[in-house]
Design a protein around this nucleic acid. Structure first.
Length: 607
DNA sequence: TGACTGTGTCATGAC
DNA sequence: AAGTCATGACACAGT
């Protein structure tokens, strides 16, 4: 089976190769045509497949081991434990830790870094806390509501343990958040993240938990964070996406009590996402909120009364746009969804201004320089060159990469936030060819390319937005239609500096897209003119050839006419029978066809 | 080190 | 009038 996958991948690569060679105008970058580059990609991909095979094998082993402890109830088709839980909780935790370890070391190939991560995990979340109900958020109601999928090693599943008895989720302290930020900023983790992303896209990952946990771009992820009313994927979703998930996976994924979980738990769970690592640790599995400055979260949530979510209100017809929504709602997803509609938003990184102009003369400059909030360009530049500082978390917050090719899992329309629906309703702007913007889209051919300046240096606008605590993502600021943008702005009381910055960001972002489009058009014009030049050259050659032929024909006709003339002239005799001298006479034809012998002395005689 | 290239930004005019 | 788009010009970073 793996061989088939590999073969098809090779064929795909070859096909892609041919297609790229055929059509260079698709906006593909240069490295796309670099054979060595693709070769390297190919090898990496093969390596990943091998790693994945190993992982799958390991997971199968684990599944077997767990299933061995279960018995299939033939009436209900459910797996039930043979006996009462035989493993003490501590043991269950240990087995889960083993799973973690395997996942980490095999997926990353860099044990040291993940050992550190694990150590941090252990310090952050003592094993006793693995009973956190939040861990089970991915379970569909059918599992969560009953005891159909009880694990023998899960005492927490026994009815004696009620959610109220559980250790309440603890908020991650700022220090720990920072530590997590640093972990996430590790290069190997970035690579791991990419690897896992690709793996999740191409394979049916047996131990997959919820896609929302695996992939922060997954809309359900947002739903879980933003709309606690739809906290869990439907059973059908799980059937389709994780069709090969068995009870063992659920049990390994759910190390806590299955009973119903209040939305507040769900929300809090996002803050504590690292606890989900026992299911399948990926950096992506962390909710962005984890890496969010508490200050921002708390401030924004307190502004809008969302800090606790203690009550479960009715489903609002149009949830208000909160900073939390915006932060957790990756713009990619918003626009991915909108991209499904006929009219689309401008391409991906349209809003990410990454270049700093030393003489920015935008209206906002005066604001910055006015010192109203003490954020000069030099300071921004300091931020630029200060990796690991605030910029890193902010870059996590603002999803820089706009990936139109992302998975588009089917989600219920009702699950979209009101804002998203609005976006769906009113996508006004024409979407340019996504390939143009795909310099940052995660095409496999750009992955290993050294990061561009725009990737390395974070957007000044993002940094400014962060400095001013602007509760919108840059992408949203730029890409929202004007009505939605105004509505969004009206829902937040922004001060003058914030307003100026937001409008500057929007202006720059739009202009950036315009410039890109302009350049693209310019290039297309150049190509078109070159083609036109070629065709004109061909026509010129053709005309020259025709002219040459015509000249030849004319010459021949003149020659024939001359000989005919001489022949006619030679037959003309005067009264005495003498021939006329061509030097003294010439033949001329009148308009009525009559031929005259005209003396060169201007004397005419009618023949 | 200078030329070239790609990109972001600003200014300006048009719509 | 405001917003958006198109485009020339400039600066900067990377090659």
């Amino acid at each position: 089976m793996e061989m088939e996958v590999g073969d098809s991948t090779n064929q795909d690569l070859d096909l892609i190769d041919i297609l790229w060679k055929q059509d260079i105008d698709l906006g593909a970058r240069r490295e796309v045509f670099d054979y060595n580059h693709r070769q390297k990609e190919h090898e990496l991909q093969r390596q990943r497949q091998l790693e994945e095979e190993k992982r799958l094998h390991l997971l199968r082993e684990q599944e077997k081991a767990l299933l061995a402890q279960l018995k299939l109830d033939e009436e209900t088709g459910e797996y039930i434990p043979h006996t009462k839980p035989i493993l003490p909780p501590q043991q269950a935790v240990i087995s889960i830790e083993i799973t973690q370890d395997a996942n980490f070391t095999e997926e990353t190939g860099d044990g040291m870094s993940f050992d550190e991560c694990l150590q941090l995990l252990a310090e952050t979340f003592p094993v006793g806390e693995t009973e956190n109900p939040a861990v089970c958020m991915e379970l569909p109601p059918v599992y969560a509501s009953g005891n159909t999928m009880m694990s023998p090693e899960q005492p927490a599943l026994t009815p004696a343990v009620l959610p109220s008895q559980l250790t309440p989720p603890q908020r991650v302290t700022p220090d720990l958040e920072e530590a997590w930020m640093e972990i996430l900023s590790l290069p190997e983790l970035q690579g791991f993240k990419m690897q896992v992303d690709e793996t999740m896209e191409t394979t049916n990952y047996p131990l997959q938990t919820s896609p929302a946990v695996q992939n922060p771009n997954y809309p359900n992820h947002q739903l879980i964070q933003n709309t606690p009313y739809y906290p869990m994927p439907s059973a059908s979703d799980l059937k389709t996406k994780n069709s090969n998930i068995g009870p063992a996976e659920y049990m390994s994924a759910c190390d806590g009590p299955v009973p119903s979980m209040a939305p507040s738990d769900i929300n809090r769970m996002n803050v504590e996402a690292p606890q989900v690592v026992n299911a399948n640790f990926t950096p992506d599995s962390f909710c962005p909120n984890v890496f969010y400055p508490n200050t921002i979260l708390e401030e924004s949530s307190s502004q809008h009364g969302l800090e606790e979510n203690e009550n479960v209100p009715d489903i609002p017809s149009k949830p208000s746009f909160t900073p939390m929504d915006l932060y957790t709602l990756s713009p990619e997803d918003v626009f991915d969804r909108s991209k499904r509609l006929p009219a689309d938003f401008p391409d991906s990184d349209s809003g990410i201004s990454t270049h700093s102009s030393p003489h920015a003369s935008s209206p906002s400059k005066s604001v910055y320089e006015g010192g109203s909030y003490g954020f000069s360009d030099s300071e921004i530049d300091d931020l630029d060159h200060n990796p690991g500082s605030a910029e890193s978390d902010y870059s996590e917050m603002f999803c820089l990469n706009f990936q139109p090719d992302d998975l588009e899992p089917a989600i219920p329309e009702s699950a979209l936030t009101g804002q998203c629906k609005q976006l769906d309703k009113k996508p006004k702007q024409h979407m340019e060819d996504p390939a143009e913007e795909s310099g940052h889209s995660s095409t496999p051919f750009t992955k290993d390319k050294p990061k561009k300046r725009s990737d390395v240096r974070l957007s000044r606008d993002e940094q400014r937005a962060k400095a001013l605590k602007i509760p919108f993502t840059v992408n949203m600021i730029i890409n929202l239609p004007v009505d939605d943008f105004n509505e969004m702005m009206s829902k937040h009381e922004l001060n003058e500096a914030q307003l100026a910055l937001v409008r500057d960001i929007r202006r720059r972002g739009k202009n950036k897209v315009a410039a890109q489009n302009c350049r693209k058009r310019k290039m297309e014009n150049i190509v078109g003119l070159e083609h036109e030049l070629d065709s004109l050259k061909e026509e010129k050659d053709r005309l020259l050839d025709e002219k040459s032929k015509n000249a030849t024909n004319l010459k021949e006709m003149k020659r024939q006419l001359n000989s005919l003339y001489l022949e006619v002239f030679g037959k003309l005799k005067d009264e005495k029978g003498n021939s006329y001298s061509p030097s003294e006479y010439s033949l001329q034809q009148s308009t009525d066809g009559s031929i005259f012998l005209v003396p060169r002395m201007k004397k005419t005689f009618k023949i």
